[in-house]
């Protein structure tokens, strides 16, 4: 399945190449950059969120601290957005 998709994708890239411009437009590259950054942030939030909820279950006063720690990886996405906006 994924192999078929890959060859399909290859075809699309080739066709785009034949049309003259680069395979990936600048907007497309920017979208991938932000997307990857968001994926990384989400992956790290999975673990931090689980731990934060665990700590909150034991002691409710930790809500604020847990929230802050959970949103910290969000800075990754903001950085990526910043870079993309500056470059575009």
């Amino acid at each position: 399945m994924s192999l078929e998709l890959a060859s399909e994708f290859g075809n699309v890239v080739l066709q785009a190449g034949e049309a003259g411009g680069p395979a990936l437009s600048e907007l497309g590259a920017a979208a991938i950059a932000v997307g990857l950054a968001a994926f990384g942030a989400g992956y790290s939030q999975r673990a931090i969120g689980a731990a934060a909820v665990g700590a909150m279950a034991e002691n409710e006063d930790l809500f604020a601290r847990g929230l802050i720690l959970t949103v910290l990886p969000e800075t990754l996405v903001i950085l990526a957005l910043l870079v993309v906006i500056l470059l575009l």
Binding site: A50, A51, A52, V53, G54, A55, A57, E58
Partner: peptide, 13 residues
């Protein structure tokens, strides 16, 4: 598996 959650609770205890 959810080691993060369990560990957070275990540490508090």
């Amino acid at each position: 598996s959810n080691p993060e959650y369990v560990n957070a609770r275990v540490r508090a205890r």
